[in-house]
Design a protein around this nucleic acid. Sequence first.
DNA 1: TAATAACTTAAAAAAAACTTAAAGCAGGCA
DNA 2: TGCCTGCTTTAAGTTTTTTTTAAGTTATTA
Lengths: 223, 223
Amino acid sequence: MKVLIVEDDRILSDTIKQCIEKKYNVEQAYDGYEGYMFAKENIYDVIILDLMMPEMNGYEVLSKLRSNQILTPVLILTAKDSLSDKVKGLNSGADDYLVKPFEREELLARLEAIIRRNNGFFLNNTLEFKGLKMNLQNRTVTIDGKEINLQGKQFDLLEYLIHSKDTIITKEQIFDKIWGFDSDTSTNVVEVYASSLRKELKKYGYDKYIKTLRRVGYILSDS
Amino acid sequence: MKVLIVEDDRILSDTIKQCIEKKYNVEQAYDGYEGYMFAKENIYDVIILDLMMPEMNGYEVLSKLRSNQILTPVLILTAKDSLSDKVKGLNSGADDYLVKPFEREELLARLEAIIRRNNGFFLNNTLEFKGLKMNLQNRTVTIDGKEINLQGKQFDLLEYLIHSKDTIITKEQIFDKIWGFDSDTSTNVVEVYASSLRKELKKYGYDKYIKTLRRVGYILSDS
DNA sequence: TAATAACTTAAAAAAAACTTAAAGCAGGCA
DNA sequence: TGCCTGCTTTAAGTTTTTTTTAAGTTATTA
């Protein structure tokens, strides 16, 4: 297991290294630019990324990685614990968030969680539900091999549903996840997209798996 | 002209890069395994290969490449200048040898010599896609034998597309590859070149193979 | 059945991608 | 040097596609 620490404070970087070097093979980068260059090689299992750095900040590194199709899980590290930073980080594709200062145990726990969660999800990069396959890389969907076309937010919604299949998700959760909690769009869009997604899936008889739980939310389940 | 530097000492690697990046398009790998993977999957004009590396040493990389019919010229780089090492390197199929530390001038001279020497022998310098042939050596393109004219960046773009055919490449990947990730040009140039390349290829009915994946990127595919 | 929640639809707005043409720039040559 | 040539970049306008809004319809439940 290889971990890359991208942190400009060398003392903190070394501290983190000491925390985790028993269990992981650690490499260090000391600014955003260097971090990006290392991470681009795509050989790490997790990247621990500080937000505040000279040259290129954490957000920039992260969004640059994601737009270059490098999907290595990222644990964001920051001194700020304001909600907006959290959202910003998660929106740019981070997997988890840790606020400085933090406990050794918590760091280790989060790392393990990320690795566990991403095993088989991020790495193979596809989601499946009863013969319906979503390729997250190229955002295509097939049902029994036949390609179906879902536009941006339709795709996002289906992804979220499959990702949390058999558990109830509220409209607010969907909204926060796809539109961002600070979006000023009306939550009616969730219904609009639920509707259009069902309409599309109906052609293949898959609309029936998306159930509405009145006053609660939605659930995707195969019963 | 593309050069791959396979060197585990990052500082030295960057120094070499600085020496030659005026004249060559440089990529870096930081261990033998990675170097081998890069060399196997990409097309370089020369590989600069360090002998002493973790994971897989230079000899192993070289002989593995040669036994996989990858005949890219290799310039071996090493701190040792014992004769036996030289012989060993040249026996495993290296084209030249350079002893650390070395002068910038010498490095450049050797690179040029290798490239000159290999001009014409080098088999790995064409790309093909459905009857369209790209000669990377003299940067010409033919479709069913008929020559078509592509200017610099148009050529680069088509090369990258064919080179990654059937896989999606994002606009950012194209931008980073052709313009360099630190270029301050706007990414709209990618669209401009996609447009002009399609326009050129349209004369031969080849524009339809370049598909746009909205919010994702482009893909070259024959379906 | 009244009230509320969810659904559907289509038009308007916004965003993304495409195209074009002019301006910029560098290398070659008189 | 200064002009020409040809490629590259910029920027504005156009087209295409997606997203949002908003109003009307349908379904559910107390």
